[in-house]
Amino acid sequence: MFSTVKKISTMVIFLSVQACVGIQTVGPGPFDVQKTMQVTVGKEWTKYPFEPKTGLQGLTIDGVSLNSLTFGVNIKDGKALIYSSDPKTLVPRFRSDMTDSEAVEYIKDSLIYSGMKNVSLANLRPETFGIATGVRFDIAADTERGLNMSGTGKTVIHNGVLQLILYIAPTEYYYDLHIEEVNEILKSATLL
C-alpha cells in the first residue's frame, strides 16, 4: 500500500438508490417540484422522496439505474450536489455568480466526483427555462463498472439560485426508450 492521508470519501450521491420508503407515482399530468418548478409528465413515473440535504428529487420509470430523471431546485451558493456529513469536505460547490457554462461544468464535475467516468458534454445551447434563458446540454459517460450512459438536461441560474433537470440512462436501449417523453418534460419546465 502506497498511499497518503487522502481518502476517497464515501458519500451519498444524488444518483444513488434511496431507501424504498414513501415511494409514490406521479403523472400523467403536471408535477410540482418543491413548489419551485413545474413540469408536465406524459407517463407514469415513480417518485423517490425529496432529498433535503442536496435539494434533489428523483423520478424513474424502470428503476433508477435504468432511467433517472433528477430535479435540483433552489440550489444556493455554496451547495454541493454530493452529500457529505462533513461541511468542510472538498467537493464541487455552486457559486451564485457562475456563468451558465460554469453551471454546466459544476454539474459535470459533480457527476465525475460521484464516480462517473469519461464524462463528456455536447450540444450546449441556450434554451428557455420558465421566464429565464438557461442552457440545454447532452452528456455521455460511463459508470465505474463500464456501462455506457447517455444523458440530457437543462439548467438555469435565476435570482442567484440554480435549477436543474438531468436525465441519465444506459445508452443501449434505455436512453431512447423515454427520450421523447423526457424532451417534452424538459420543454414544459416552468419556474413557479
Binding site: F2, S3, T4
Partner: peptide, 10 residues
Amino acid sequence: VKQPYFNANM
C-alpha cells in the same frame, strides 16, 4: 487506474 489520488496498491 483513473483515480486522481496519489495511490498504488498490490
